[in-house]
Design a protein around this nucleic acid. Sequence first.
DNA 1: AAATAAGTGAAAATGATTGTCAGTTCCATT
DNA 2: AATGGAACTGACAATCATTTTCACTTATTT
Lengths: 145, 145
Amino acid sequence: MGVIKEFYKQYLLNNKIRYSAQRDKILDVFLKMERHLSIAQIYELVRNKYPQIGYTTVYRAMNLICKAGIAEKIDFGDGISRFEHKYGQEHHDHLICLNCGKFIEVIDAQIEELQRQLAKTHKFVLKGHKMQLFGTCCDCSKDIK
Amino acid sequence: MGVIKEFYKQYLLNNKIRYSAQRDKILDVFLKMERHLSIAQIYELVRNKYPQIGYTTVYRAMNLICKAGIAEKIDFGDGISRFEHKYGQEHHDHLICLNCGKFIEVIDAQIEELQRQLAKTHKFVLKGHKMQLFGTCCDCSKDIK
DNA sequence: AAATAAGTGAAAATGATTGTCAGTTCCATT
DNA sequence: AATGGAACTGACAATCATTTTCACTTATTT
Ligand SMILES: [Mn+2]
Ligand SMILES: [Mn+2]
Ligand SMILES: [Zn+2]
Ligand SMILES: [Zn+2]
């Protein structure tokens, strides 16, 4: 059994939440999936393997998985929440292509440090941040030109 | 007549869009208002002065004002769009208090420069960015402690 | 003035997300 | 093993911000 599943079970145990068959299957799907899928896409994957599981249950399970710290809900500003892996992943931000929707995960230690300083300057206790750079990716720049 | 209103009229003229009484009044309200108001709040202000103007018209007018480059729609991730002044304003990002909702407008030249470099590194043609720092503001830190 | 185009506002539609609730499953206690 | 309560499920309804529709009015052009 994977370490993440053990971690999840422990989280549920600590919070007196049951580890149901549905939650197990949805976690499996999430752990195997590509990054940044929407609920609709995750539900589609779930439905292929376990057609009896409902949409609402996927919603609830994903919210639980987020609360446990295994997934993170991300918002690219298009009204659709996407989920990405969080457990054991380092923090990163996103470069998003406005043309094809592709995105690149980026991390810049200098920016992160400057963000901390900026918060300090304004006497904010920093809890997190969101940074998204929008533009045209390398491939799309060629096409457009 | 203010320079912004002239600019708006010119934008509408260039795009063969009429300058209606409603659009005029909604622009007036927007130009006088505080920053970062939602549609519901803008509509409330509009309704006080011009009770005959409908909610839908406010929506449409604000979208136009955005397209003209006079307002900018901002998304703090809570499902509600807010609008801020853009004409003649310098770009800035936001520090947002998770406790009281207050926010501070910030700009950091070093971060902006590093963002440009980061995009360049990944061969992205940068069009814009969104950066929000979340935390607890100075006042709320006191209260919580 | 007539014809055409654009704008308005009330109401309905949309779409993502959350709440409800009757039926089911799980667990601890007898 | 039986039972009673708590948690869970899934279909459906509700919510809420935003967009679309459409009959009607207003402005512009011929
Ligand atoms: Mn990512
Ligand atoms: Mn601002
Ligand atoms: Zn692209
Ligand atoms: Zn605060």
